[in-house]
Write a protein that binds this DNA or RNA. Structure first.
Lengths: 141, 141
DNA sequence: ATCGCTGCAAATCATTTGCAGCAGC
DNA sequence: GCTGCTGCAAATGATTTGCAGCGAT
């Protein structure tokens, strides 16, 4: 059926729209912050009290695959998610208060192009995170 | 006692030299690759058959704290370690064969200095990883 | 009526930790 | 001999998965 563009996952399954999935996406879109699966679970429970953590993980996986959200693994080994409406960006992570600030500029777009040439490598994604102290925490110490 | 510089961890304990710790450091120094705790465990068992995985983790923690090795968490959520003798660098990670190539140049040293100014942030460390296909895998597909 | 999705619970995987004996310094 | 280190096993924390019923198309 030409013109039919139902979203599908990598394994070819059609993706349905459920209130659980919509609630998760809503939270990530509204909060505009970097939430862990557990934090998302706690937030979704307000509107969907019977949702399970397993469902949260399954939906985060699907939404990541669809490109609706980004998954980031930071140095603490825990994955955090954010809405993809913000577009490509990087992170300043405070090692004291754990706050994450987004860096809207991507200074290495050009560098990556050069890498492709000099290292025989086809770049698809890249991650750049800076760890340190945010202004607030620096002044507190 | 001035002139006395025994290595210590953050909690002030003196660090002793043990054959288990030395074996782990040897492997990382010789292999010059990015090994997971489990891979290191398997490699150390050849010379230290009675070593436990717990000891491997404890030593990786101490060696990281001392700055003898680097810990990196990649997108698969697993930590990988490498000898610090190589110096600061970044990574090209192949999402097909999982091979990791080191990037000796750090193109963002200057960018990070600018960030400090414009974002009221004190940078301590930074990570930069590019995910994509290495030359070998690109030609295979 | 399909077949994807859900809640629940149990399973898995990486990593951490309590403990009693052992080993550097 | 003090005290950090080890092996072992059990505990933790994040994430995944099997299953039977439910719900979206």
């Amino acid at each position: 059926m030409p013109g039919d563009h139902k979203p599908k996952t990598a394994n070819g399954k059609i993706v349905r729209s459920t209130k659980q999935r919509q609630a998760i996406l809503d939270i990530l879109t509204k909060q505009q912050s970097h939430l862990s699966a557990e934090e998302i679970y706690q937030a979704v429970k307000i509107t969907q009290p019977r949702i399970s953590l397993g469902t949260v993980y399954r939906n985060l996986e699907i939404l990541t695959e669809l490109g609706s959200i980004y998954r980031n693994s930071f140095a603490d080994g825990k994955a955090r998610y954010e809405s993809a409406t913000i577009g490509h960006h990087h992170h300043l992570v405070c090692i004291n208060c754990q706050d994450i600030e987004n860096l809207t500029a991507c200074p290495m777009a050009q560098d990556i192009g050069n890498l492709a040439q000099s290292h025989d490598f086809e770049p698809l994604e890249h991650y750049f995170e800076v760890y340190g102290y945010c202004g607030k925490c620096r002044r507190k110490d």
